[in-house]
Every structure is written in C-alpha cells, then in structure tokens.
C-alpha cells in the first residue's frame, strides 16, 4: 500500500528536552493508526509535526509523497480533531463546520449544503443554528469531527479524541469512529494514552516512550508479543520477568512477558505468596510475589480465591511465557 505519512529520523528537541527523538514510522494509506504512550512520550508532538504546528529539528517528514517540513498547517491536506475540540465559540455549528470551505472561498449556499451533509454524517442534522456552548461534550466532539471531515482531508488526525467523554459515550464513539473510517476509506491517525482504545480501534499501533517508538505492530503483536519490557508493562500490564529469573526457569538471557490471565493455580508449580486480592466483577485479580518478583494473576469467576498472606502454587503454559527480543 502507498505510504500516507512517513517519518525518517524525525526529532523535535526543545533545548535539552527531546520531545521526539529519532522517530521512524510509515503509515499506510487508508490505515487506522494509533500512537500510544504515557503523557510526555512524544505522541502528541508527533501528531503536531504531521499537522504542521511544530517543525522538526532533524529528519524528514513526507505526507503523501511530498516533503512536509516548512509547510504551514494551512498548506497540508490533513485536518485535526483537537483534544478540547477547539470549536469557534462565536460561530454557530453550521459556520463552524463550514469554516474550512469559507476560508477556501466557497460560496455560502454551497458550503452550507456541504456542512449540512457533514452534520448528517455525524448524526447532528438540524443542529446547525446552535452555538457550541449549547451542546453536550459528545455533540461537540461530533461537530469537531464534521468540521475536519468536510474539507475532505486525505488523513484525519485525532488528538485524544475521546478523552473528555464518559465511559459509555467513549465506547459508542470508538465504534462510530471505526465505522466512519471504514466507510470514508481515509487514513486516521489518533493519539491516546488508553491502551484499550488503541487495541480495539487501530489496525496498527506505535507505542511511544520518552520520545521514541519502542514497538510498532498490530494490536495482537503489541498485546501478545511485546518486544520490550515497557510495552509488556504499559499495554495491558503483563507480568515482566527479569533475565535472572528467565535464566532459571527458561534458560534464556532475556526479559519475559506473561499475561495475567495465562497464570493459573495448580498443585505443583512455582511458589507464590499472595499479597493482595481485588474483586473486579468478571474476574478476580491476585497480586503475588513469585521468585521475588511482583506478579499478577487473573482468576475467572468461580475459581477458588486464595487468602491474603497464604502461599499457593501457580503454573503457566510454556507457550504463554513470551520471550522479548530486546
């Protein structure tokens, strides 16, 4: 597939602070791409580099084959949905959505027709006369989406788009964004610190840490086959086993990752001292100490719950213990 956005050794340093440091990535056309990482990991700065709000201090950015560095935001055919939506408070919803077409010089009747179509697409037909302040958070989010999409961008950038919504609305918007992306067929690039969101929506995920990409891959890769301890720990909180332990139990000199749901109780396995037990509803999380390392185990509903302070035996399938490459 042709490349939509390509970063080659891109850095953005502010003095001594390396916000983005030597990032390489290649986002394909039509892909739903997630940039995942904790705050301050460089994911938002990378998005702003694509949008043109920041310029790289080193490296090359290509957007649909064209060199992008030096181009101002208004000369790039990408549009952004901002974290706080950034709707213009003095304009009504229709004028907000039609803004991009207005500055491009499109006639009023024509741009209002396009704005109405875009509002229909996000299920907000008939809201054109309202002011943004009269809308709920979820509705503002949809207006921001319509305002970006009405310009028919080749790539849509979303900065923590669901961060301000409550859980139920967030799940609903995840599905809507996904189906919108499928029906429009354009590239969606979105930034999030929520690994569940990244895994459920994206075709591919880049995990950021300290200004660098530590792993890029499909959600399954990221979840089941983390390459570095950071990914194992950050994405779905895998148990990370240090090389000392791995040498003893597996005979390899590398970090290991073990999903909490892959650990189970058995009669003869590893000694585990139970530190804490938390009831999660569908399952119960047991925090314990195994070979001197903190580990968690997820017990399905109905399993026998061990007492805090007791020592139990735990096992796992050899295949479930993933050996990390770095």
């Amino acid at each position: 597939m042709p490349s939509a956005i390509r970063f080659s050794g891109v850095s953005r340093h502010y003095g001594n602070v390396k916000a983005v440091d030597g990032v390489d990535m290649d986002i394909a056309e039509g892909e739903f791409f997630a940039m995942l990482g904790p705050s301050g990991s460089g994911k938002t700065t990378s998005l702003r580099l694509i949008a043109g709000f920041e310029q790289p201090t080193a490296g090359d950015i290509h957007i649909f084959g064209h060199v992008a560095q030096g181009l101002p935001p208004y000369k790039r055919n990408v549009n952004t949905v901002f974290q706080d939506y950034a709707l213009f408070p003095h304009l009504n919803v229709r004028d907000n959505v039609a803004y991009g077409l207005m500055v491009a010089g499109q006639a009023k009747a024509e741009r209002y027709r396009s704005a109405e179509r875009a509002l229909d697409m996000v299920a907000l037909g008939g809201y054109g006369d309202r002011k943004p302040s009269a809308l709920s958070g979820g509705q503002r989010q949809r207006v921001a989406l319509a305002r970006a999409l009405v310009n028919e961008p080749k790539a849509l950038l979303l900065d923590e788009p669901l961060g301000a919504l409550d859980l139920k609305l967030r799940e609903q918007m995840q599905e809507e964004l996904k189906s919108l992306q499928r029906s429009l067929g354009i590239t969606f690039i979105f930034v999030t610190h929520d690994q569940g969101e990244a895994l459920s929506m994206a075709d591919r995920v880049a995990v950021f840490n300290e200004g660098r990409i530590v792993q890029t891959g499909t959600p399954e890769d990221i979840y089941y086959r983390p390459e570095v301890p950071f990914v194992a720990d950050f994405v779905g909180s895998s148990n990370v086993l240090p090389p000392e332990i791995m040498r003893d139990i597996r005979g390899v000199d590398a970090y290991g990752a073990l999903r909490p749901e892959a650990v189970r109780r058995c009669d003869a396995g590893h000694d585990a001292w139970v530190r804490n037990v938390s009831f999660l509803g569908a399952s119960t999380r047991v925090s314990m100490q195994v070979h001197g390392v903190a580990m968690t185990m997820l017990l399905p509903r109905g399993a026998e719950i061990p007492a805090v302070g007791s020592t139990i035996q735990v096992c796992w399938q050899q295949d479930d213990l993933h050996v990390m490459s770095r």
Partner: peptide, 27 residues
C-alpha cells in the same frame, strides 16, 4: 481566547490574516 482556536483555524486552511479576521478579531 484559547491558543487552540488559532491552531484550529490554521488547520482548516486559514492563513494568518484570515485567522486574525475570522477568529481572533471577533473574539
């Protein structure tokens, strides 16, 4: 006036003059 409004305007294709005229000035 949130700085994001200015970025949003530029992102939607408005140059500096248009951003001043349509976003900053009314606010």
């Amino acid at each position: 006036v949130s700085g994001n409004l200015i970025e949003a305007s530029m992102d939607l294709g408005a140059n500096s003059f248009q951003t001043f005229r349509y976003v900053i000035l009314p606010n």
